[in-house]
């Protein structure tokens, strides 16, 4: 049997695939341990506490300066979004601009499956 020609780039691609699969497998195995999950969750808890502390501290400074906090800006954003939603709902209810033109009636609901689809042969 003839040997396949030497293909350095093909070998490099194979190596890349093997590296990807190996690292994915290693990572999954590592992450499956209780210890790594505990460490990751500890890091997340620490980060959350830091984030909460920063938010509270910034809120105090901004309040002292008479400036809105992120929560204030988000609250305004929410109200604007609620107004947009209302306008969109009204637009759908009254104007119905996106509806297909009346000149284009919907097709009849009379389609039947082709004869070759009427038996149970899905897999």
């Amino acid at each position: 049997m003839a040997q396949p020609p030497l293909d350095p780039l093909g070998m490099w691609r194979d190596m890349l695939n093997q590296w990807e699969q190996g690292l994915n497998r290693l990572s999954t195995d590592t992450m499956q341990t209780t210890e790594s999950a505990r460490l990751m969750n500890q890091a997340m808890a620490l980060s959350l506490r830091f984030q909460q502390g920063m938010t509270e501290m910034m809120a105090r400074y901004l309040h002292a300066l008479g400036l809105p906090t992120r929560a204030d800006v988000l609250s305004i954003g929410e109200r604007l979004k609620a107004m947009e939603d209302q306008i969109q709902t009204l637009s759908i209810s009254y104007d119905k601009p996106p509806a297909p033109p009346a000149t284009e009636p919907r097709p009849p609901r009379t389609k039947k499956p082709a004869p070759d689809k009427t038996s149970d042969k899905t897999s």
Partner: peptide, 22 residues
């Protein structure tokens, strides 16, 4: 869903802290 299951391990995952903060 083993990895998600492990990541949300009841013993170490503080879901209340996460949701209450974020």
């Amino acid at each position: 869903l083993s990895l998600f299951h492990r990541m949300t391990d009841q013993k170490s995952f503080d879901v209340d802290g996460l949701v209450d903060t974020l």
